[in-house]
Design a binder for these strands. Structure first.
Lengths: 215, 215
DNA sequence: GGTAAGTATGTTAGTGCTTACTAACTTTAA
DNA sequence: TTAAAGTTAGTAAGCACTAACATACTTACC
């Protein structure tokens, strides 16, 4: 009789190792992204995943290894996405479509996954050993690709003769600063859609870079 | 005899309260900038200042109050500097000098004080209550000022009719991304001087924004 | 197809260490 | 002499991590 009245203690959901592992990674990624590595406790992660702390350490040898697994996952996710973006952009025929697609895809990606930029910044600031790889996977390929494109268009005579590294940084800077303003600084006073913002950045950039004599 | 041979235990330097307070702020600012709030211990701060931990808590009621004092100091420092930059820029007669001076001064400021950007980012990521004020003091005035300038030049007919908020973000983004690449991501492959970088950004931006029909 | 053995997945209750912070005392300088 | 500026030696709470045990699922065998 009594047991029927007592609040049913919901049994802990028993998961297969791989499923649990993935769940822990997902929960921990959220927490690390919002509080950083040293600001997140293994107890919080365990609570978030609905298991005891000991389970965390059955799946990951240490808190640091768990963090590394997350960065590793994000690196893969990021560089895949990046590759797809670059291919998509390269398939475009004109400058406007090339840069427009790049800017738009970056804005969309970070709109959908707000943890990415936070993890990237936290890991760089906190000096994690994987942070360089993280940054490289996100930025280096894109940077090199853009530079190459700019070089090509410069030798075509379409762009002014400008330092490709500086131009690439200028373009990426516009976009990433917009991402950070929204993701990190909650500064949302540019009310346009990602498509519109991308278009306007591209317009400024292309006019700025194209070969046309302006006083 | 013995005491003459023993290593002279350098007496702890006795400072006036205000001097010590400032020294602690300076030491702690470095540490918070490099490891974040939760990554820095009061023990480390005490060691850095060459005093016992108890001294920290004589000057600051809590670790949090110490952090707040640092952010407060940086906010003042930042907005003073910002004001000076804006005045300097406003005194310039032409667009190139206006934007050039802004970009150059920002690059120079962050070259001299690498802790500023790190503290700004850490406080925003870790969600400190003063972080909004910190961001505002750095960005809002500048943003509004730039927008106003762009609006003016647009109604002069010198600039294309473009959203001032987007244009301001584009310009600031170029500069701040360059700052972050150096300060946070150790990506130093743009080898130019701050003056040169500023000039090139301004060239891209002004060409991008000026009223000239380009296909 | 039922069941016992074995294994995978979970919990509890700790460990020693570090943390922010404090009380009680000592030294220096005006 | 007295107040300011320092120290030492703690405190309770929180940290990452672990050993020892409990429970559920899978498989092997009759």
């Amino acid at each position: 009789m009594e047991s029927a009245v007592l609040p049913q203690k919901s049994q802990p959901t028993r998961m297969r190792a791989e499923t649990r592992r993935n769940q822990i990674v997902a929960v921990a990624a959220e927490l690390f992204a919002s509080r950083g590595f040293s600001g997140t406790t293994t107890k919080e992660i365990a609570e978030g995943a609905g298991v005891s702390e000991a389970i965390i350490f059955r799946h990951f040898a240490s808190k640091d290894k768990l963090y590394a697994a997350i960065l590793d996952y994000k690196v893969k996710q990021g560089s895949e996405r990046m590759k797809a973006q670059l291919e998509e952009a390269a398939s475009r025929k004109d400058d406007r479509a090339f840069f427009g697609s790049l800017a738009f895809e970056m804005l969309e990606f970070h709109s959908k996954d707000r943890t990415f930029m936070r993890l990237l910044l936290f890991s760089a600031l906190e000096g994690h050993e994987l942070s360089d790889i993280f940054f490289d996977s996100t930025a280096r390929d894109m940077k090199n690709h853009i530079r190459k494109y700019i070089k090509q268009r410069t030798s075509d005579g379409a762009f002014r003769s400008i330092d490709p590294a500086v131009a690439a940084r200028a373009f990426v800077g516009m976009v990433l600063h917009q991402v950070q303003a929204r993701t990190i600084f909650k500064d949302d006073d540019v009310k346009l859609s990602n498509r519109q913002i991308a278009d306007r950045f591209v317009e400024i950039f292309l006019n700025g870079v194209r070969d046309s004599e302006v006083g």
